[in-house]
Computed example of a mutant assay.
Amino acid sequence: MLLIKRKLRIETERLSLRPPIHADFRAWAALRVDSIDYLTPWEPAWADDHLTRKAFTNRVYWAQRSVSGGTAMPLFLVRRRDDMLIGAITLDNIRRGPAQSG
């Protein structure tokens, strides 16, 4: 059986939604630092190594496995006019079957 790996990318007039890649590390870390006050009430406490390259690399690998396995869709929101990372969203806990959910 031939397995075709589909790339997940959603394009709108102003945004591209795509999984994270290793080259996003600096933009991601800067965005997280700039947004810490907003994010704190909504997220679990960050680990001490949350903003490290190694932690981000693990995040990228998790994203790749999740997309391939169909269990989650972690997406970065990238503004098309200047290719700037402006946010992220994850649809997680995707379940298949008669009552599909995510």
Rank of each mutant, 00 (worst) to 15 (best):
L39G: 07
A72H: 10
A29H: 13
D24I: 05
L75H: 00
P74M: 03
A72C: 06
E13R: 10
K54C: 13
E11I: 03
F25T: 13
R96L: 10
L51W: 12
R26P: 06
I94V: 08
W42A: 11
W42I: 09
I86P: 01
L8V: 08
G70L: 09
R32S: 14
Y38N: 09
F76A: 02
L39Y: 06
R53M: 15
S68Y: 03
F56S: 14
A23W: 05
L17F: 05
H22R: 04
I86Q: 01
L8N: 02
W46K: 14
P74L: 02
I4L: 05
A99V: 09
R53W: 15
Q64D: 11
S101E: 13
W42G: 06
P74Y: 02
Q100C: 03
R81M: 08
T52D: 01
R65F: 11
T71R: 11
D82I: 12
A27D: 12
T71H: 09
P19W: 00
S68K: 08
V33C: 07
G87A: 06
K54G: 12
L17M: 02
G97F: 02
R32F: 14
L8S: 06
Y61P: 02
M1K: 05
A30E: 14
A99H: 08
F25V: 14
P98Q: 06
S68W: 02
L91Y: 06
R80C: 13
R14D: 00
D34L: 06
R96V: 12
A55V: 10
L17K: 00
Y61I: 04
T12M: 02
I4T: 04
L2A: 04
E11S: 02
Q100I: 02
L75I: 03
V78F: 00
S101V: 10
A29F: 10
P19D: 00
R32T: 14
L8F: 04
Y61S: 15
W42S: 13
M1P: 01
E11L: 03
V60W: 02
A45Y: 01
R9K: 08
R9M: 06
I94T: 05
S101K: 13
T57P: 05
R79I: 09
N58W: 12
V78A: 00
K54L: 13
L2G: 04
I36R: 15
L85Y: 03
R26L: 11
A27L: 12
L3R: 12
R81T: 08
I94K: 02
T71M: 05
T71N: 08
E13F: 04
L15W: 07
P74I: 11
R80D: 10
S35C: 06
I10T: 01
W46F: 14
L17S: 00
T71Y: 10
E11N: 05
T52Y: 03
R26M: 12
R6G: 14
T90P: 03
A30I: 06
L3T: 11
F25I: 11
N58I: 10
A99I: 08
R9F: 04
W28A: 15
